[in-house]
Simulated assay, not measured.
Amino acid sequence: MEVRVLFFARSRELAGASEATLSLQPGSTTAALMPHLLEQFPQLSELGTSFVLSLNQEYLAPGEAQPLKAGDEVAVIPPISGG
Protein backbone atom coordinates (compact mmCIF):
# COMPACT_ATOMS: atom_id res chain seq x y z
CA MET A 1 0.00 0.00 0.00
CA GLU A 2 1.14 3.55 -0.58
CA VAL A 3 0.94 6.51 1.78
CA ARG A 4 1.77 10.12 1.07
CA VAL A 5 4.26 11.80 3.40
CA LEU A 6 4.45 15.59 3.65
CA PHE A 7 7.50 17.35 5.07
CA PHE A 8 7.31 20.75 6.74
CA ALA A 9 9.91 23.31 7.89
CA ARG A 10 13.25 21.70 8.84
CA SER A 11 12.06 18.23 7.82
CA ARG A 12 11.51 19.56 4.29
CA GLU A 13 15.06 20.91 4.21
CA LEU A 14 16.53 17.65 5.49
CA ALA A 15 14.48 15.45 3.15
CA GLY A 16 15.18 17.70 0.18
CA ALA A 17 11.53 17.38 -0.83
CA SER A 18 8.15 18.64 0.25
CA GLU A 19 6.51 15.23 -0.11
CA ALA A 20 7.16 11.59 -0.90
CA THR A 21 5.17 8.43 -1.50
CA LEU A 22 6.18 5.38 0.52
CA SER A 23 5.19 1.79 -0.10
CA LEU A 24 4.42 -0.10 3.09
CA GLN A 25 3.12 -3.52 3.98
CA PRO A 26 -0.64 -3.71 4.54
CA GLY A 27 -1.42 -3.37 8.23
CA SER A 28 1.51 -1.01 8.88
CA THR A 29 1.21 1.66 11.55
CA THR A 30 2.55 5.18 11.92
CA ALA A 31 5.22 3.77 14.23
CA ALA A 32 6.34 1.33 11.51
CA LEU A 33 6.53 4.22 9.06
CA MET A 34 9.49 5.86 10.82
CA PRO A 35 12.14 3.25 9.95
CA HIS A 36 11.07 3.49 6.30
CA LEU A 37 11.32 7.27 6.39
CA LEU A 38 14.79 7.15 7.94
CA GLU A 39 15.90 4.57 5.39
CA GLN A 40 14.80 6.75 2.49
CA PHE A 41 15.75 10.07 4.13
CA PRO A 42 18.58 9.36 6.63
CA GLN A 43 19.11 13.08 7.19
CA LEU A 44 15.81 13.16 9.11
CA SER A 45 17.61 11.44 12.00
CA GLU A 46 18.94 14.92 12.82
CA LEU A 47 15.48 15.73 14.20
CA GLY A 48 15.77 12.97 16.81
CA THR A 49 12.41 12.91 18.54
CA SER A 50 11.79 16.64 18.07
CA PHE A 51 8.83 16.37 15.72
CA VAL A 52 5.21 15.33 15.67
CA LEU A 53 3.27 13.37 13.09
CA SER A 54 -0.18 14.02 11.81
CA LEU A 55 -2.35 11.45 10.11
CA ASN A 56 -4.90 12.81 7.67
CA GLN A 57 -4.57 16.28 9.25
CA GLU A 58 -5.01 15.04 12.84
CA TYR A 59 -2.05 15.37 15.21
CA LEU A 60 -0.83 12.18 16.85
CA ALA A 61 0.45 12.00 20.42
CA PRO A 62 4.20 11.28 20.71
CA GLY A 63 4.73 7.56 20.30
CA GLU A 64 1.13 6.96 19.23
CA ALA A 65 0.82 4.16 16.67
CA GLN A 66 -2.21 4.42 14.40
CA PRO A 67 -3.02 1.94 11.63
CA LEU A 68 -2.35 3.16 8.10
CA LYS A 69 -4.36 2.43 5.00
CA ALA A 70 -3.66 3.06 1.33
CA GLY A 71 -3.94 6.72 0.41
CA ASP A 72 -3.38 8.07 3.93
CA GLU A 73 -1.48 11.33 4.35
CA VAL A 74 1.16 11.59 7.06
CA ALA A 75 2.91 14.87 7.84
CA VAL A 76 6.27 15.26 9.58
CA ILE A 77 6.15 18.49 11.57
CA PRO A 78 9.26 19.61 13.47
CA PRO A 79 9.21 22.39 16.06
CA ILE A 80 8.73 25.76 14.43
CA SER A 81 10.18 28.88 15.96
CA GLY A 82 9.58 32.43 15.01
CA GLY A 83 9.25 35.86 16.33
Rank of each mutant, 00 (worst) to 15 (best):
M1D: 13
M1S: 14
E2F: 06
E2P: 11
V3P: 01
V3I: 15
R4E: 14
L6S: 06
L6F: 01
F7E: 10
A9W: 00
S11L: 03
S11M: 02
R12G: 03
R12L: 02
L14K: 04
L14Y: 00
A15C: 09
A15W: 00
A15Y: 00
A15I: 03
G16H: 01
G16E: 01
A17Q: 11
A17P: 04
S18A: 13
S18T: 06
E19M: 07
E19V: 07
A20Y: 00
A20G: 09
A20R: 09
T21P: 02
T21K: 15
T21G: 11
T21C: 13
T21F: 08
L22Y: 01
L22S: 08
L22H: 04
S23A: 15
S23R: 14
L24G: 08
Q25F: 02
P26K: 15
P26R: 15
P26L: 10
G27V: 13
G27C: 14
S28W: 02
S28H: 05
T29L: 12
T29H: 08
T30F: 10
A31N: 05
A32R: 14
A32V: 04
L33C: 13
L33K: 06
P35M: 14
P35C: 14
H36F: 01
L37D: 04
L37M: 13
L38W: 10
E39C: 10
Q40H: 10
Q40G: 03
Q40D: 05
Q40C: 09
F41S: 10
P42S: 06
L44N: 02
L44C: 08
L44V: 06
S45A: 13
E46K: 05
E46L: 10
L47G: 02
L47D: 00
S50R: 15
S50M: 09
S50Y: 04
F51M: 06
F51A: 07
F51E: 05
V52E: 05
V52K: 07
L53E: 01
L53K: 03
S54Q: 07
L55C: 11
N56M: 12
Q57E: 12
E58N: 08
L60P: 10
L60K: 07
A61P: 02
A61Q: 14
P62K: 12
P62Y: 01
P62I: 11
G63L: 14
G63Y: 02
E64A: 15
E64L: 14
E64Q: 15
E64C: 12
Q66V: 15
Q66H: 13
P67H: 09
L68W: 01
L68E: 02
L68N: 04
K69D: 13
K69N: 13
K69R: 15
A70P: 06
A70I: 05
G71Q: 14
G71A: 14
G71H: 08
G71Y: 07
D72I: 10
D72Y: 03
D72H: 09
V74R: 03
V74T: 06
V74L: 15
A75M: 07
V76I: 14
V76A: 02
P78D: 07
I80P: 04
S81H: 06
G82K: 11
G83Y: 05
G83P: 12
